[in-house]
Amino acid sequence: MKGWRPPAPFILLLPAIVVLAAVVIVPLVLSLYSSFTAFRLTQPASLYTLIGFRNYQRILTDIEFWAAFGRTVLLLTIALNLEMLLGLGLAMLVEKATSGQRLLRTIMMFPMMFSPILVGFQFKFMFNDNIGLVNNTLQSLGLSSQAIPWLIDGTLAFIAILVAEIWSSTSVFAILILAGLLAMPKEPIEAARVDGCTPWQTFRYVTWPFIMPFAYIAMTIRSLDVARAYDIVKIMTDGGPAKRTELLWTLISRTAYADARMGVANAMAYVAILLSIVFTAYFFRKLSAARTQIAAEW
C-alpha cells in the first residue's frame, strides 16, 4: 500500500459521499434499528431495548393503521385516475392549439410551482365554513342556502383534500402526456383517417397506445407522491375530524411525535415504504408492457 493514492474521481466524489452518508444512510440505518426497539422519545434509554418484530406484529393487528392505509389507497386510486383524465384532456387541448402553445404550457405548469404547504393553506381558506370562496360562491349562485362544513364533515374533508391534490398535480400528467403527443409521428394518424377511422377509433387504437408509456411514467411519479402525502392533509385537516382523513404519513407523524412512540412509527414507515415499492413495481411492469407493445406496433 506504500505510495498508493485514491483515484481522482473518488477524491472528487468524497465530499458528496460523506454528506450522503450523514443525511441519508445513517438516519436510514438508525431508523431501521429503532423499529426493532421499544424506543420512545420520552425515554431515550429505550432505544437500546430490543423487542424483535413486536412493533411489526402490532402494526399488522392495528385497525387504525389499516384504516389509514385504506384511505391512502382510496386517495391514490381516485386522484391518479382523475388526474390522468384531466391531464389527458388538457394535453390534447394544448396540442391542438394553433397559437400561444408555449404560453399555455407555461400556464399549465403553474400549479407544480406551488409548495404543498402553500396549496394546503390556499384550499383550507377556500373551503372555510364562513369566509371560504367555495361556500360564498355556492350561496351567491343560490346552490346552497347555508354554509357547508367542508373541513368538519369527514367525507367532505376527504373530498376537499382530493380536490387540492388533483389541482396541484394534474399538470404532471398533462406535461408528460403532451410530450408524448408532440413526439408522436403524424403519419399513422393520417393513415387512420384515410382508412375511414372515426376520431374515437383513431385515439383508441393509434394515439393512446403511443402515449400510454408517458401516462404510466406520470402514474409512477404521482403514486409515490400520493402514497407519502402529508403536507396538504396536515395543513387542511391534520387527519381530522376524528381521524376520518388520517393517511399513512399523518398517522406515522402523530405516532412518532404526539404519542412519542418512535419505534412503532419507524416500523409503520418501513411498512409504508414496502407498500410504495409494490405500487411502483406494478406501474413499472405496466410501463414495460406498454413499451413492448409500441416497439411491436410502431
Rank of each mutant, 00 (worst) to 15 (best):
L86A: 00
L60I: 10
P15D: 01
L76D: 01
Y56I: 09
T77C: 03
L20F: 15
L90M: 06
L14H: 01
L80Y: 03
D62R: 00
S34M: 09
R71K: 15
I25W: 10
V26I: 13
L28A: 15
I25A: 14
L93C: 08
I63K: 15
A45T: 07
L30D: 11
F65T: 01
A16S: 13
T77L: 12
E64A: 10
L14S: 14
R40S: 12
M84T: 12
Y56G: 08
E64W: 07
T42S: 15
A45S: 13
L30W: 10
L30R: 15
A67N: 13
G70E: 09
L30G: 12
A16F: 10
A67H: 12
V73I: 13
L60W: 11
R58Q: 14
L20W: 14
L75Y: 09
L88H: 02
M84R: 09
G89D: 01
G52S: 02
L80V: 07
E64I: 06
F65Y: 05
A45L: 10
I25T: 14
A38M: 07
L86I: 11
P44N: 06
A45K: 02
A79L: 01
M84V: 11
L28T: 15
A67I: 11
V24S: 14
A91G: 10
I78W: 02
P44F: 03
I63G: 08
A68N: 01
S31L: 05
T77S: 09
L14Q: 05
L50E: 08
Q57H: 09
Y33I: 02
A67S: 13
N55E: 07
N55H: 04
